[in-house]
Design a protein around this nucleic acid. Structure first.
Lengths: 216, 216
DNA sequence: ATTATCTATAGATCTATAGATAATGC
DNA sequence: ATTATCTATAGATCTATAGATAATGC
């Protein structure tokens, strides 16, 4: 995954006094891994910086050599999650192949990503609000970016004639719908999973989406 | 709206030493009104109990005569929002009438409720996590209850032959989809509203949903 | 010599309560 | 007399840093 100049990685944007770039990466990865686990378990606000330090095997002082604030950690966490979701979705799109049911296959693979990263996606819904506004904006932009992957795929399928042609606004809305119906599994899972397995959920929602997109 | 015995109102469940029932209601309404405003503006965790007291015209000591903790306030807020959404949705269903396009009309009215209560619905998505587990459960149950209104309506429309017959799991999933696509306007509004007005959003999504529900 | 890390704590903040005071109704 | 309200603060907690120490590389 390449990044444009206007979108440097999260790490690049958070300052540190530590000189060794590799070390910074490694330490921050430790911090993020520990923080993700704790945030999912107890939420951002109920997790203390000391706990994060402890869980990532550092002293509190050391932790603060790699981040300037607790919000920094949340931001790193959100970025890491997005990167992983984006990677998952991109892979899903590639693997979906090019047959007659590509779109169904894309949806299936995307929903599996949502299923696998359920807690992480939920975390972003619930805690990204705690970020300072400019960083929240970056996180929201990432959401759009993931929906953008679907937009590109659907447009490509339209040129290939696999999917009926639509005007742009329709395509975009469909992409948002697919994205959100995947997320729905994450934030209504406590209820939905009583009635449907992820496979059944996917099957039903795919049918729903494809019918909704069909030529009128 | 009547409440079953197993579901006493939120007020009934939070203890207080104050004897005057009416006063308790009034004061708690003051607290909730102020808290909703502040929570929407700055979030639950960044709002202090003193601010809530100030904004509702009470001393901090008095505030704590009507609630036992800050979480109590969040719970009252969530319940109040749900009550209003539920009222809005019920009204929407009634007013939708019984013509051939009832379902479209229901969706339209429901989406307008989501539009009007956008910030409130978002608040529940973002902050209900901070509730103690048993209360969080009550809040989630309320979500299901609202979806239940749609389930009942769709089933009724099926008996009346206005909508094609489906098995129960299909109906339930459609009801969840309608609910969530309304919510989508609240948590992607910052993006969607650049491209669609609420009316256009509703028109497009209604078409999508109805096609998706049509007989195969 | 420089870089990385640790310990100990300053400083800020916030929730919740105790104890005093004012208002109300008999 | 009882009920409602206010002021002042105890007590707990947590983020972030200063200053000391250990590790590393020349």
């Amino acid at each position: 995954m390449t990044r444009s100049q206007s979108d440097p990685g999260a790490d690049a944007v958070i300052p540190t006094q530590i000189k060794d770039r590799m070390l910074v990466d490694r330490r921050r990865r430790q911090i993020v891994d520990a923080a993700v686990r704790l945030f999912i378990e107890k939420g951002f606000h109920k997790t203390t910086t000391r706990e994060i330090a402890g869980a990532s095997g550092m002293s509190i002082g050391l932790l603060y050599e790699y981040v300037a604030s607790k919000e920094d950690i949340l931001y790193l966490v959100c970025e890491a999650i997005h990167a992983e979701v984006e990677r998952g979705v991109s892979q899903a799109m590639e693997k979906a192949g090019g047959g007659r049911d590509v779109l169904a296959e894309m949806i299936r693979r995307y929903f599996l990503v949502c299923h696998r990263m359920s807690n992480h996606i939920l975390l972003i819904y619930q805690e990204s609000r705690a970020l300072p506004p400019p960083w929240r904006k970056r996180v929201l932009d990432n959401e759009v970016k993931i929906t953008g992957i679907f937009i590109d795929c659907i447009k490509r399928l339209m040129t290939e004639g696999v999917v009926p042609r639509k005007e742009n606004p329709s395509v975009e809305l469909m992409a948002h719908n697919i994205t959100v119906l995947g997320h729905m599994w994450t934030f209504r899972r406590w209820f939905l999973s009583r009635h449907y397995s992820i496979e059944e959920y996917t099957r039903r929602q795919t049918r729903f989406i494809l019918k909704g997109m069909a030529q009128t």
